[in-house]
Write a protein that binds this DNA or RNA. Structure first.
Length: 559
RNA sequence: UGACCUAUGGUGUAAUGGUAACACAGCUGAUUUUGGUUCAGUCGUUCGAAGUUCGAAUCUUCGUAGGUCAACCA
């Protein structure tokens, strides 16, 4: 066991899918087979991460297998670019599929089964156009009416369907439908479409086919071909289950079963692919991997770790109830991980220069700083210190409120790991803005402890002004300020809910050693939050993304 | 005016006819060379009504509320 001890596993209660599986195992199901079936028409988001953790996690837990299956039945929307990104994201999350499958691999079998259904009198070619079919379907309260082509002979259907496949007919001129019940209370059972004609180039089968199976026809059979025991999908497919079962039973093939769980929703976040695509296309974000996006690549770029996303998926649970998870839970998960695993560094995002007047002009000394107080093995590092340092503008107030224990005139504060300093003089420009603080240090206080036992409550971070490197730092706020960005007034869209101030770019200063940091590394900048190197980072212009702030009870109190 | 799904603290999730609990969020305090971390404490919960039962969050019935379904999308 790598992540949990056995005891923890045993103490945890089962979710409803685990209960079903354990019950199936008890009743003789020998191997568990799941699958993750994305359509390669966009990038994966945190909602998919929940499904990935579920499907791959269940397979792992019960020593089964989990296939990755690209559900590529609609060539007009699917691209290889997406296939590659999906594979990358799943592996980044820490999972590996047993088999890489494509629904398009089964086009031949699916076609043969459609012919079989026709022969059984369970499918027919319909010449009605889209509008006629829609009208014939009725409504949720009014039964549909049979198509005039519903009673074609088997021979005629076979002939027509073969000619559909041969490309004899125009797009939209004919479809293959199942013959079920036009008055069924479940709209999906009113003679659903099995095949449509689409003279389109497919990213894998190229121009081999001009008829393509619909989702409902392809999905269950693909599960069946792969011997999937537990086909897990989201709640909106619940009404599809009778149809899923219908095909399997009429075809008399391996009985896969479908189970539905509630999809993930997060406050202040939009999750639909369509909306995320819109954000990208309208250039409201930098791309699919913008650190403000809920995409997996966005989270990765932001500095989220695979373990933190997995922990989140675990904490949100699995059930059938519609839910909205507080974005704060995701932030909690990444803080918890990074607190233990990210090394500390010092950086100043909004500097004021501090001149230590009684410190020798040309002296530089080395300060030893703890890399991670949560992990002694992380050791210490050397940080230069000299007469001029930068501190955070927030860490000085000329007229401090009560309980402010940072720097203010005549008050003493600790420069973390270095010295105690006292502010003697405030230098301002002609506009009254503080430009420099002239301080004196206590030479006896190296390391930060006074020699006479006097207590100094405040501790602030700093960087050596002569040796610090200037970098770009990107600070993110939530993309939407409303808890439910999808809820909009008449005439508005979720786009109107975008937070205009979700990105702040600042120039900050970092410890000199930090320039060696590489893409993929994340640090805690002490007292500020967790920061990850951005892919835009270059030798000339290093770029850091703030993954998440630290909890800050002072800021909260003084809001 | 259909069928199906769902209903437990602020948000999630458990309790499988027998003491309603866990996490996040909130609030108090302690510790702390990060106003971080950690620790201790605290707030607050079974949609409604009737029924079955010694006993109901759990079973039954009737309500109520929310969601899903009428693409040649998945």
């Amino acid at each position: 066991m790598n992540e949990h001890t056995l005891d923890q596993e045993e103490g945890k209660s089962l979710n409803f899918l685990e209960e079903i599986i354990e019950n199936d195992i008890k009743e003789g199901c020998r191997e568990i087979h799941t699958r993750f079936p994305p359509e390669p028409n966009g990038y994966l988001h945190i909602g998919h991460a929940k499904s990935i953790c579920l499907n791959f996690g269940l397979a792992k837990r019960y020593n089964g297998t989990c296939n990755l299956r690209f559900d590529d039945t609609n060539p007009t929307k699917e691209e290889t670019e997406y296939v590659d990104s999906i594979k990358e994201d799943i592996q980044w999350l820490g999972f590996m599929w047993s088999k890489e499958c494509y629904t398009s691999d089964y086009f031949g079998q699916l076609y043969a089964w459609a012919v079989l259904l026709i022969k059984k009198g369970l499918a027919y070619v319909d010449d009605q156009n889209q509008e006629e079919i829609r009208l014939g379907r009725g409504t949720v309260t009014v039964p549909g009416t049979n198509s005039p082509f519903r009673d074609r002979s088997v021979e005629e259907n076979l002939d027509l369907f073969a000619r559909m496949k041969e490309g004899e007919f125009e797009d939209g001129s004919k479809v293959l439908r199942a013959k079920i019940d036009m008055a069924h209370s479940n709209m999906l059972m009113r003679d659903p479409l099995l095949y449509r004609i689409l003279h389109a180039h497919h990213h894998r089968t190229a121009n081999q086919w001009c008829i393509y199976p619909m989702y409902d026809y392809a999905h269950g059979e693909s599960d069946s071909i792969e011997n999937i025991t537990h086909s897990i999908c989201t709640l909106e497919f619940d009404v599809h289950r009778p149809l899923y079962d219908w095909f399997i039973s009429k075809l008399e093939i391996y009985p896969s079963h479908q189970y539905e769980f509630a999809r993930l929703n997060i406050t202040n976040t939009v999750m639909s692919k369509r909306k995320l695509l819109q954000l990208v296309q309208q250039k409201l974000v930098m791309g699919w991997d913008d650190p403000r996006m809920p995409t997996i690549c966005g989270l990765r770029r932001r500095g989220y770790t695979p373990a933190s996303v997995r922990a989140f998926a675990d904490k949100v649970g699995v059930a059938k109830r519609d839910n909205v998870i507080d974005l704060g839970l995701l932030e909690f998960c990444v803080r918890e991980d990074l607190n233990h695993n990210a090394e500390r560094r010092m950086a100043v995002l909004d500097p004021i220069k501090v001149v230590i007047t009684n410190y020798p002009e040309d002296k530089t000394e080395i300060i030893h700083c703890v890399n991670n107080p949560e992990n002694e093995e992380a050791g210490k590092r050397e940080v230069p210190f000299s007469r001029e340092v930068y501190i955070e503008r927030d860490d000085f107030m000329e007229e401090p409120p009560k309980k402010y224990y940072r720097l203010s005139p005549c008050k003493e504060v600790r420069l973390r790991y270095a010295y105690l300093i006292r502010c003697d003089e405030v230098v301002k420009d002609s506009d009254g803005r503080v430009v420099e603080l002239r301080c004196s240090y206590d030479p006896q206080s190296l390391g930060g402890t006074s020699s006479d036992g006097r207590k100094v409550k405040g501790v602030i971070h700093w960087v050596d002004a002569t040796k610090a490197k200037e970098v770009e730092i990107r600070l993110f706020d939530r993309l939407f300020l409303q808890e439910s960005p999808d809820v909009v007034e008449e005439g508005k869209t979720f786009i109107d809910n975008i937070n205009p101030n979700s990105l702040h770019i600042v120039r900050g200063f970092i410890e000199p050693e930090l320039v060696k940091a590489k893409l993929g590394e994340t640090f805690q900048f002490e007292r500020l939050g967790y920061f990850a190197i951005d892919k835009d980072s270059t030798l000339e212009n290093m770029v850091f993304n703030r993954t998440v702030t630290l909890k800050d009870s002072w800021a909260k109190e003084n809001k």
